[in-house]
Amino acid sequence: MGTTFQDRTMTVPEIHPEHKEYWDAAAEGKLLIKQCDSCGEYHYYPRVLCPYCMNDKTTWKEAKGTGRIYTYSVMRRGVPYAIAFVTLDEGPRMMTNIVDCDLDKIHINQVVKVVFKQSGDQDNPGPFIPCFTPMSDE
């Protein structure tokens, strides 16, 4: 029983010039987030200018890649998939998908870790996308 995760075609994101490092790191299985050199805050999605103080010096940091599910919803139309927000251990919450698990067992506060899935399809392969998978059923 349950709702088994199935791969689906993820929309290929538009690559903006300031995100080259982010997508290059994703291809190597690393999740980058930005930290402001001035106020010290982490933010996501990554900007060149800090969204908290507009300082124009922000630095890429590799996230630990672990966090907890803040909220989620399983789409029941078509191939089922779970959209979610995950709170990273570093603080920021990011939109993502919960993958490689029984979608019916997903719950808020579940501990998850990042896994990367390639966007697009065989004819039009896109960058790797940070998804999350439960570290246990707890």
Binding site: M10, M75, I83
Partner: peptide, 16 residues
Amino acid sequence: PFELPFGPTAVNEYAM
């Protein structure tokens, strides 16, 4: 770029 791959729609956003 940081949202569309995850399949946001009107319904599943409000659902979250």
